[in-house]
């Protein structure tokens, strides 16, 4: 009962905060509300016994990525929101697209089937701790996807350095 209550609070708070993030006029306020949003998502992971994921959510998203957002906003020094013409024309079109998407999602939800249960069960996570289970599976079964993701990130880092150093060479 209480578990459902906590989930209901977290879900409601996440939705309300997401709406607040996109509707604030001041971008710094948006980022701060997003920080609160990330903490709620981390709490959601905690209720699922995914403690490692919760910690990483806070360290990586709240601690690093969001601070970079904040840096960019502060360095741009926006006095007021930039007025840019809309990407799509009249608003009824956008509303129709959104409602259509919602309709599709509700339709597809009905045919939702829970996946077959694997070897990693909630009981195993509790005895082995989440960090250990995740580490084992990441570095044995999923080692190739893991390495590919690492390579992609390395390419991005090298690309950023090349872009930043362009001026020095010419």
């Amino acid at each position: 009962m209480l578990a459902e209550g906590i989930f209901a609070y977290l879900a409601a708070a996440i939705i309300v905060l997401s709406i607040l993030v996109v509707t604030r006029r001041n971008p710094v306020h948006s980022v701060l509300l997003m920080l609160l949003l990330f903490f709620h998502i981390a709490a959601l992971y905690l209720t699922l016994d995914a403690e490692f994921l919760a910690a990483i959510q806070v360290i990586v998203y709240a601690g690093a990525i969001l601070v970079l957002f904040l840096f960019v906003i502060l360095l741009l020094n926006l006095k007021e929101e930039m007025v840019v013409s809309r990407y799509i024309g009249p608003w009824p079109l956008g509303l129709m697209a959104a409602l259509g998407l919602l309709f599709m999602i509700t339709l597809s939800l009905r045919s939702f089937v829970a996946g077959p249960s694997g070897q990693i069960t909630a009981a195993l996570i509790k005895t082995e701790t989440h960090t250990k289970v995740l580490g084992k599976i990441l570095f044995t079964e999923y080692i190739y996807p893991f390495e590919i993701v690492s390579m992609v990130l390395l390419v991005a880092i090298i690309g950023a350095i090349v872009l930043a150093k362009k001026k020095l060479r010419s």
């Binding site: 403690e51 919760a54 910690a55 360290i59 709240a62 601690g63």
Partner: peptide, 18 residues
Amino acid sequence: NINIGLLFILAMSSLGSY
């Protein structure tokens, strides 16, 4: 006494910069 104590401290210290 949580299993991710060290990560928790790192997370909180990154929050301090806010």
